[in-house]
């Protein structure tokens, strides 16, 4: 809307500029006056976020291990070959993909279910909503620690404790006591992340549900459409963009996840994802060149997802603007 009002103004300013040099100068001043409030943020962001990536790109072509500072040299694409051939790093690429896809899909599905429930009116809806948002508002490291020690600890965690209690109700003193953190470490990481990210998906999908055009749905109900038909042919198509948005934003955040992997398993037992491997390559192994090349690989992967994400955001954005 604001762009529509701005366009004619701009034309009005630029029209006399062809004839009168003074007017050209004035037009230029107005243009810069318009830009001025934007510049500090823009310049700050370019310096702080873009320069480090340029540096990463340069270092990724270098042989540089801080433990052997005299050996620094140009490496060509050696580091990239290492990224793709190194067993550990290849495994962490696969772990990243499995972790991200599982967490995003499951939390999207659970989030959709919860959003559909919360879209109905019932007693205590506000409290339920608040309780469901709570997992998202626990500091991620704190959440990971609570999962690791208070829930999943094999001897006194809540999960095994509950199993003992339930089994004792049936008179058994031999309850199953799984050690999830060592037996299924990736599953443990996934479960804790799904727990934290489902509220995020739920919030986005609930907003989507509540923006449905109700008159169309009522018309469909009057025409005798079944509840499933309404969901399948009206609600789901409307939600598609919100599902995409939730999925893509979730992907971008979870690909970058470090806290859960670092805290729950310290990247052991095949749970090291790319951010953790990069952290380790540079912080523990001090191989700067290899860490940077891995970083570049992550950036390329993210750019591919981000392109889709940006497109989805853009579509929603245009819709909001035209409203």
């Amino acid at each position: 809307m604001s762009s529509a009002t701005a366009a004619p103004q701009r034309q009005r300013q630029s029209r006399p500029s062809t004839s009168d040099p003074k007017a050209t100068a004035r037009a230029r001043t107005t243009r810069w006056a318009r830009r001025a409030p934007l510049l500090p943020a823009l310049i700050f962001l370019i310096i702080v976020t873009q320069l480090p990536f340029v540096a990463t790109l340069i270092i990724s072509f270098m042989n540089w291990n801080s433990l052997r500072p005299n050996d620094t040299s140009f490496a060509g694409i050696d580091n990239y070959i290492s990224v793709l051939t190194d067993q550990g790093l290849r495994a962490s690429i696969i772990t990243t993909i499995i972790l991200t896809v599982t967490v995003v899909l499951v939390s999207l599905l659970l989030g959709l279910g919860l959003a559909l429930l919360l879209d109905k009116k019932f007693i205590g809806r506000g409290i339920v909503r608040t309780m469901l948002i709570a997992p998202f508002l626990i500091v991620p490291v704190a959440a990971a620690l609570v999962w690791k020690h208070a829930l999943l600890n094999p001897s006194y965690g809540l999960v095994n404790g509950t199993l003992t209690w339930v089994w004792s109700l049936f008179g058994s003193d031999n309850p199953p006591q799984p050690e999830l953190l060592s037996q299924a470490p990736l599953f443990a990481v996934e479960a804790s992340l799904i727990w934290q990210w489902t509220p995020f998906m739920m919030l986005i999908l609930l907003a989507g549900l509540q923006s449905r055009p109700m008159d169309v749905i009522e018309a469909a109900q009057i025409d005798g459409a079944s509840r499933w038909q309404i969901f399948r042919y009206l609600t789901l198509p409307h939600l598609r963009q919100y599902l995409e948005l939730g999925g893509l934003l979730g992907t971008i955040y979870i690909v970058q996840n470090f806290d859960a992997v670092f805290t729950l398993t310290s990247g052991g037992l095949g749970t090291a994802n790319l951010p953790f491997s990069i952290y380790q390559t540079f912080y523990t192994a001090n191989d700067y060149g290899l860490a940077s090349a891995t970083g570049v690989v992550v950036v390329i992967g993210t750019i591919i997802i981000a392109t889709f994400a940006l497109r989805t955001v853009f579509t929603l954005f245009q819709k909001e603007e035209s409203r």
Binding site: T49, P52, F53, T56, I252, V255, Q256, F258, L274, P275, I278, Y279, F282, S292, G295, V296, V298, V299, T302, I303, I305, A306, A309, L310
Partner: peptide, 8 residues
Amino acid sequence: MLPIVAAL
């Protein structure tokens, strides 16, 4: 959208 870890 660029991962922080790559700038670390």
